[in-house]
């Protein structure tokens, strides 16, 4: 029962989506399943938030190493949740002004929008920006022209790095028109349209074959590894 029911749920849901792509009569079935999926996906956010709270509360109660940071996480979590679910500082939708809860949770002036602008944006954006430094350090230490393959990789990186900035124009802009294909900015476009396209297309086709095969195994009940250990074939 614990494994049979999920197996059949997966098979029925999968075939409903599959059929809806081929039979117009079943289009609305696929649409309904899709809509249910969307709501379950939104509830998964609640699960994620609950799981985070549970783990951090346990850390605090056990006084694990670094539990103070778990307190920071929990406090920030609680404030954001309160600001968002409570729509603190949000005015009603002017079309329904009598309803205080009708306003947009993210509207300017609300606490939720303040958290977004001054908390979420700076941290997430700076975290991604940090990678610029690490990629520079990695390039200095790891990019070695050891063999033909590495030379190809390095040369391409050089052409792209120079060709996608004004450096390309300065370095090779003097080339005559008949040799304009060798200008770095044109060369970088050519690399993207030909060699990169071929390489990535092969990867895309390979992935498509893999995804189709795996999906089919799930739909036919052959692959049950997603249910955890024991039933994997």
């Amino acid at each position: 029962m614990k494994r049979l029911v999920p197996l059949w749920i997966a098979i029925i849901a999968g075939f409903a989506m599959l059929l809806s792509a081929f039979l117009p009569a079943t289009e609305s079935l696929g649409e309904t399943f899709g809509d249910v999926f969307n709501v379950v996906a939104a509830i998964a956010f609640v699960l994620g938030a609950g799981s985070l709270a549970k783990i951090n509360l346990a850390k605090v109660s056990r006084k694990d190493q670094g539990w103070g940071y778990a307190v920071v996480t929990l406090v920030c979590f609680a404030i954001t949740l309160l600001a968002g679910l409570g729509k603190i500082g949000v005015h009603p939708n002017p079309n329904f002004a009598a309803l205080p809860w009708s306003g947009d949770k993210e509207s300017e002036g609300g606490l939720f929008a303040w958290i977004y602008e001054y908390g979420l944006v700076p941290i997430t954006a700076t975290m991604f920006a940090l990678l610029a430094f690490y990629v520079a350090s990695a390039a200095f230490r790891a990019f070695r022209a050891k063999n033909v393959e590495a030379v190809l990789l390095l040369s391409t990186a050089f052409i792209v790095l120079l060709g996608r900035t004004f450096a390309g124009v300065v370095l090779t802009g003097w080339l005559p028109d008949w040799a304009s294909g060798l200008r770095l900015e044109n060369l970088s476009v050519y690399i993207m349209q030909v060699f990169n396209t071929a390489g990535n297309r092969a990867i895309i086709i390979g992935i498509a074959l893999g995804v189709a095969a795996t999906s089919l195994r799930i739909l036919l009940g052959v692959d049950r590894s997603w249910m955890g250990s024991g039933d994997a074939k």
Binding site: D35, N38, V39, A41, A42, I43, A44, F45, V46, G48, A49, L52, A53, N56, Y69, A70, V72, T73, L74, V75, C76, F77, A78, I79, T80, L81, G84, L85, K105, F112, I115, Y116, G119, L120, I123, T124, M127
Partner: peptide, 26 residues
């Protein structure tokens, strides 16, 4: 501190958005 803060803020932010934008209307 910043790292711990963003974990808490992100989780609550996503949950709030999911609640008001999908769970409530649908």
């Amino acid at each position: 501190f910043a790292e711990a803060a963003i974990v808490g803020v992100s989780a609550a932010y996503w949950m709030t958005i999911g609640f008001w934008d999908t769970i409530v209307p649908k």
